[in-house]
């Protein structure tokens, strides 16, 4: 596909002045979701995006969100969006997706260890799952904010997962292995900036998820290379200043009770 503005993309129909790079960035992100990854194939990745959408209206998640402890057992999660695709996902995978969408601040090391122990997901596959879920959440959030209906889920592409394991992965204090900047292999030289924050390294067990995250951030926010521009605004192609951006970013983080 060479057209960055897919015909079905409802962003194209908005009366608001959406930047071309923003529309193209969203189209590229959906194509990334649809492609086979390192540990999930295209069908499974689009199914994860479908589960991401289901989480918002999941009755089981409503009950858990209302409970004092996020450890309570819940019955099966809703799978109303693209059920034929979600049939490819085991229940612990859907549970992990829904927890990440609905209650990210109540996730814990215990949750990830339990998931890994179930055998449903390896730590690297979980990192890829986080990449897909968070792409889908943010793509849909832009539509919600601008009053534009959600983009149709992409058609899954064929192919098997590459099972690519980058050089230099190590366990530090996170719940997934990450590549230390000093251990970057030749194939991953493009991943990090200087300096590099842990939030950039978080998905480095699956380098293409870092690349996809950086590309979408450049379209929705600013490029990593522009992070030290504290003026922002028109000099980085935006109609709001960096201070205005950071006010919004800080408030979103606080509402999500994000410690980072």
């Amino acid at each position: 596909m060479t057209d960055d503005r897919a015909p079905a993309d409802p962003l194209r129909d908005s009366e608001l002045p959406l930047r071309d790079d923003l529309v193209a960035g969203h189209a590229a992100a959906w194509r990334h979701v649809a492609r086979s990854g390192a540990w999930w194939n295209g069908v499974e990745r689009v199914a994860i995006a479908a589960a991401t959408r289901d989480a918002w209206s999941c009755a089981a998640c409503d009950r858990r969100a209302a409970a004092l402890s996020p450890e309570i057992e819940v019955s099966e999660h809703g799978r109303g969006v693209a059920p034929e695709l979600q049939a490819h996902l085991a229940e612990p995978v859907v549970d992990a997706v829904h927890r990440l969408v609905r209650e990210p601040a109540r996730l814990s090391r215990r949750c990830s260890e339990r998931l890994f122990a179930s055998g449903a997901v390896s730590p690297a596959a979980y990192a890829e799952l986080v990449g897909v879920v968070t792409q889908a959440v943010s793509l849909d959030a832009l539509h919600l904010a601008l009053g534009i209906g959600p983009a149709p889920l992409p058609e899954p592409e064929g192919g098997e997962p590459s099972q690519y394991e980058p050089q230099g992965l190590a366990w530090e204090d996170a719940w997934v292995p990450m590549i230390l900047p000093a251990n970057l292999g030749e194939a991953e030289r493009d991943l990090y900036g200087d300096p590099t924050g842990n939030v950039v390294r978080a998905l480095s067990a699956v380098p293409d998820e870092v690349r996809a995250m950086k590309a979408l951030s450049a379209a929705q926010y600013i490029a990593i290379e522009q992070m030290r521009d504290y003026v922002g605004g028109e000099r980085v192609g935006r109609a709001i200043s960096r201070a205005q951006m950071e006010l919004v970013a800080g408030r979103i983080s606080a509402l999500h009770e994000c410690f980072y």
Partner: peptide
């Protein structure tokens, strides 16, 4: 939209 993603990456990976 961007920070709907970044907060979950941080929270989801610990």
């Amino acid at each position: 939209a961007n920070f709907h993603r970044m907060t979950r990456i941080a929270d989801g990976t610990g």
